[in-house]
């Protein structure tokens, strides 16, 4: 039985545990609320964590579509990028999978002498981390861009009044 098969067989269990350790990065009382409330509008964070863990796990196993993987992670990373986390904490959820797999499968594979398999699988998780880092950086950049855009928008008429904008889009010839 290959590692992929083992993972696929224990998917529900592993996904559940992964979701739990991601939730565990939040305060205890928050975890309970987010775990229990399944309404995606009343509890977007909890639902996103569980959905992401589920979908990402499948994508990791087939490991074909990089774009799909990035899309799958995007919402969760965006959420964590604006929450009270340091950058490392924000994308730690990827490494938590690595930790989980070692805990769950490490001994078994070592006994079978197949620990190499896990290590090669882990390169996928490493790649996942790099992608997560990209998305995280992009999200942070976006936050700063939005701050600039907001200031620009809130003053557009004033800039115009102060004659500070040469509006190239407006046709000047017929004025």
């Amino acid at each position: 039985m290959s590692l992929e098969d083992k993972l696929a067989a224990r998917k529900t269990e592993l996904v559940g545990k992964w979701g739990d350790v991601i939730l565990a990065t939040y305060p205890a009382e928050t975890q309970k609320v987010w775990k229990r409330q399944r309404d995606r509008f009343a509890n977007p964070v909890g639902v996103t964590i569980l959905e992401t863990a589920q979908n990402l796990f499948d994508l990791l196993l087939c490991w074909q579509d990089a774009e799909a993987i990035a899309n799958c992670m995007e919402m969760l990373i965006k959420i964590r990028a604006v929450q009270q986390f340091s950058p490392s904490q924000a994308i730690s959820f990827v490494f938590l999978l690595k930790k989980l797999l070692r805990e769950e499968l490490g001994d078994e594979l070592r006994m079978e002498g197949a620990i190499e398999e896990l290590m090669s699988f882990e390169t996928r998780i490493d790649n996942l981390a790099l992608m997560a880092f990209d998305i995280y950086s992009k999200s942070r950049e976006q936050v700063y861009e939005m701050r600039i855009k907001e200031i620009k928008l809130s003053h557009r008429m004033l800039m115009r009044k102060a004659d500070m904008i040469a509006d190239v889009a407006a046709p000047t010839a017929d004025k």
Binding site: Y26, P27, E29, T30, W34, A42, N43, P44, V45, I79, V82, Q83, Q84
Partner: peptide, 8 residues
């Protein structure tokens, strides 16, 4: 703010 931040 609670829903988005999780800060009790």
């Amino acid at each position: 703010y609670f829903i988005g931040s999780g800060d009790p």
